[in-house]
Structures are given as structure tokens and as C-alpha cells.
Simulated assay, not measured.
Amino acid sequence: MKHISKVFTYLLLAINAFFVGILLLTAYSPYIHPVVHPIESCMGLTFPIFLLINLCFFIFWLIVHYKYSALSLLGFLLCYSQILTYLPMNFRTAPTENSLKLLSYNIMAFNHLEKTGGANPILSYIQKLDADIVCLQEYVTPQNTKGHLNEKEIRKGLKAYRYRNVQQIGEKGSNQLACYSKYPILSARVIPYESHYNGSVAYEIKVGDDTLTVINNHLESNKLTKEDKVVYESMIKDPDADKVKSGARLLINKLAEASAIRSKQVDAIAREIATSPHAPIIVCGDFNDSPISYTHRVIAEQLKDAFTESGRGLGISYNQNKFYFRIDHILISKNMSSHNCTVDRSIDSSDHYPIWCHIEIN
């Protein structure tokens, strides 16, 4: 009986070691280039799953045989920075008077310009938040359609912002990025890279004696149709083996294709950061990628993540079809500090939650 118990213990240890290895592989997958190995580069999306599995092993060994818990503990230590990036736990701090408030929000065309009770909830939210700089993705210049939000109402609603810039992005020209600012926008230009519908815009914004480089992004979408998202949701609700196998193959191939396209866009943004004539840099927007990804790693190489520095929890920013990921980000240069970075779940009118924070130039 004792012999059987030993064999079972060693078998569990072997399984534990396997999952520690997978955890480390997902944690360091951002170093895999998506063009060379597109599928493997997407492994970071599963990081929280294997983190949870190893946490269960850690608790189990603490109860049964505490010495063996060192295996999972070693895994946690080897990916400590990734854990902090994915799941920061910071206390709220009071911003200084000199800090500026920045909002990044994929507004889904102001929820397709719909009104509720005569007002557009997204426009009302932006007004109420009263950020100093507002970077919007999936913006739309509305036509005067009866019963829907129009251009005049947007201008009136955002009249506190003296400066605004709207740019067409993508080769098809059906998507827009917008920046509203209480500070002068000195220049704005689209960063050149290939995409049918997505893009990035670099702004120079004068804040007091400083000039900021602000890069607003809507990076390559994951090419998932409404039908694909339904497949994913049904996999989560009813994990039938055949359904999971066929659905997973479909989703992984689409995610990998988008990841490879996005990597070239990210390299262009990284060059823009490296050649910026201004030291204070803010990069924000809808990255369509998680904090454990090639996208995030390359952009954050010379910057730091405001949510990691001053946010709390998972910060899930996409709110549809059970895709529980933080894909909206605010990154800042190392000569800046952030306070109370928040993914705001108080409004769900878009398929993204807004992300905002107070930023101070040190």
C-alpha cells in the first residue's frame, strides 16, 4: 500500500512539473516571433489558466506534503514579473495637482450612434470623466440620421476640449481614430503600416513646458466573426470534446494569423517610440492582445505599463462573448508615473470598457 502511495505521489509530481513547464512556456511566449511561429506566439492567452492550475497544485502540496510545494513556488518565482503584469495589486494613491488625466476608449462608433433617453451614454461618460486627453478608437464622424447621435451633439458635448483631431486609418478608410485634448495638439500623423481597417496615429501635444508624444492605436483585430465568437462561447458553456477540438483549431488559426499581421504593426510603433524627439511618451489604445504577448512586450520594452504600476486585479477590458482579457492598455515612458489606472466597468455601452489613469511627468 505504501509503495502504491509513493508511485501516486511521484506521478502527481511529474504532472505538476509538466504544468510548471507549460506555465513558463506561456509566460515567455512573448519572445516567440509571431511571423516565425504564429500559433506558439499566442500561448500567452492561456497564461492565467496554467497559473491557476499551478496554484491548485501549490495549495494541494501545502496540505499534503509541504516540501513538494517548492516545485510550483519555483515556477511562480521564474515568472514573477509576468504575474505582476497580468495581475497587479496596487493601493490607490492620490494624484498630484500637476498630473494629467488620460482616457483611452474603444467606443464602437458611440455604440453605433444610438441614444438612450435622448442621450448617448458613451458621450455622457466622456463628459463626466472630464479627462485632459481623450484617445478614442472606432470613432465615427456621424451623418445627420434622425434619432441618432450627430456631429453637432458630439461637438457640443465635448466643447470642453478646445483641440481635436480625427484621422482615417486603414487602407479601406472605414475606421477612424480621434484625440480630444485640453492642451494644444501641435501635430498628428498616421504611422505607416499595412492594414485594411486598423491603424495608429502619433500626436505631439504641448503640456506646459513639455511636449508629449502620444500614440493612439487600434491594432489588427483578431479576425473573429460573430459566428466564431458564438463557437467560442458555446465551447465555454458546453465543453464537448469534438466541439472543443474543432472550435479550438478554428480560433487558434485565426488568432495566429492576426498575431503575425499585428507583429509588423508593433515593430513600426516600436520604431516610432525609439525615434521620438520628446522624452515623455504615452502609448495607448486597443491592442487586441493581452499583457502576455509579443505586442505588449515589444511596445513596453522602452516604456512601462500604467495598469501594472498603479492598477489592481485582472482589468478585463473586453466585455463580449466571454473573452476575458485585458486588451486595452496605457503605456508610459519611464520618466512618468501613473496613479489609479482603472479599467472602468461602470459602463458597458461598447464592447470594450474604458481605461483611464492620472499621469505625472517626473
Rank of each mutant, 00 (worst) to 15 (best):
H3F: 14
L13E: 13
A14N: 03
A14R: 03
I22G: 14
T26H: 11
E40Q: 12
F50M: 05
L52C: 12
L62P: 02
V64K: 15
L78H: 10
Y86I: 05
M89V: 09
M89F: 14
F91T: 12
E97H: 13
S104W: 05
N111G: 07
L113M: 13
E114T: 14
G117F: 09
I122C: 08
I126N: 10
Q127I: 00
L129Q: 13
Q137W: 00
Q143Y: 06
E151M: 12
K152V: 03
L158T: 01
K159F: 06
Y161T: 07
Q168P: 02
I169E: 08
K172G: 05
S174T: 14
Q176N: 06
Q176W: 00
L177Y: 11
I185C: 03
I185P: 02
S187Y: 06
V190G: 05
V190P: 01
S200M: 06
E204D: 13
D209F: 07
N216S: 04
H218K: 08
N222W: 02
N222F: 04
D228R: 00
M235E: 07
I236F: 00
D238E: 12
D242S: 15
V244R: 07
A248E: 06
L250D: 00
I252N: 03
N253G: 05
K254F: 01
I261K: 13
I269T: 02
S276G: 09
P277K: 08
P280W: 06
V283F: 05
N288Q: 11
N288E: 07
S290I: 01
E301Q: 13
L303M: 02
G311S: 13
N319R: 15
K322Q: 11
D328A: 09
H329K: 07
I330C: 07
I332V: 15
H339D: 10
H339K: 14
T342N: 10
T342K: 10
D344E: 09
Y353K: 08
Y353Q: 04
P354W: 00
P354R: 01
I355F: 04
